[in-house]
C-alpha cells in the first residue's frame, strides 16, 4: 500500500495537527510514514500545508508533486493544489470555505464536508480540522478510525488531554457525514 496526501489551508486551521495525527496513526499501524510540514515564516493567516506519505514499503521522496489525495481547507489552497491531484484521485473539500462548484476537474473523486457547521453542532468551531480528518479516513481507510482516535493522546501534550473526548467526537461526526453523503 502506498498513499500520498497533501493537506492545505490557512495557518490556525489545524492543518499540521491533523497531518501529524494521521501520520501518528499510520505509525501505530506499523506502516512506514513521512510527515512533512511546509511552513515557512507564515503564522496565523498564512499558507499552511503538509504532506503525509504512508507506505508498507520504504518511502523514497517525502516530497510529492501530484498526490493521490488532497484535503483543501481554504479557497487559495484549491487554486494551488486542485490541479495537481492525480487523475482519479480524491479531493476532500471543506465546503464551509470552498465552493465545490469552483472545482473544474471532472476526473476526481470529490467529497464536500461543511466542517465548520458540523463543528458548530459540537459547540466548538475549532474542531473543524478533526471533522475533516474523520471524513477523510472514513473514505480512504488509509488507517482505521479507531487508530486515528487512539493517536490523539499521542500528539497532544498531556495538559490538553481533557480535550481528547471532544476531538474524538468530532472525528466520529466527520466520519458519519462522509458515510452518509453521496459523491458529487
Amino acid at each position: 500500500m502506498y498513499h500520498e496526501i497533501i493537506m492545505s489551508g490557512v495557518g490556525g486551521q489545524g492543518i499540521m495537527v491533523i497531518g501529524s495525527l494521521l501520520a501518528q496513526a499510520a505509525f501505530m499501524e506499523n506502516l512506514n510514514v513521512t510527515y512533512t510540514p511546509i511552513y515557512g515564516v507564515e503564522k496565523r493567516g498564512g499558507h499552511a500545508d503538509c504532506t503525509v506519505v504512508i507506505s508498507s514499503e520504504e518511502i523514497g521522496s517525502p516530497i510529492v508533486d501530484s498526490p493521490q489525495s488532497c484535503i483543501i481547507m481554504s479557497r487559495p489552497s484549491l487554486g494551488k493544489y486542485g490541479p495537481r491531484v492525480k487523475p482519479g484521485g480524491f479531493l476532500l473539500l471543506n465546503s464551509s470555505f470552498v465552493d465545490p462548484l469552483e472545482v473544474r476537474r471532472k476526473d476526481l473523486d470529490i467529497l464536500s464536508v461543511p466542517a465548520l457547521e458540523i463543528a458548530q453542532t459540537l459547540g466548538n468551531d475549532r474542531l473543524s480540522n478533526m471533522v475533516i480528518i474523520g471524513a477523510f479516513v472514513e473514505k480512504t481507510r488509509v488507517v482505521s478510525l479507531d487508530t486515528l482516535a487512539a493517536a490523539l493522546s499521542q500528539i497532544f501534550e498531556e495538559h490538553y488531554h481533557h480535550l481528547l473526548p471532544a476531538n474524538a467526537a468530532a472525528i466520529s461526526k466527520g466520519a458519519e457525514y462522509a458515510r452518509n453523503s453521496f459523491h458529487q
Binding site: 501529524s20 501520520a23 505509525f27 512506514n32 510514514v33 513521512t34 510527515y35 512533512t36 510540514p37 518511502i59 517525502p62 516530497i63
Partner: peptide, 9 residues
C-alpha cells in the same frame, strides 16, 4: 531543512 523537519519512522 527537509531532513531536520520531517517526521518519520
Amino acid at each position: 531543512a527537509v531532513l531536520g523537519q520531517i517526521q518519520e519512522t
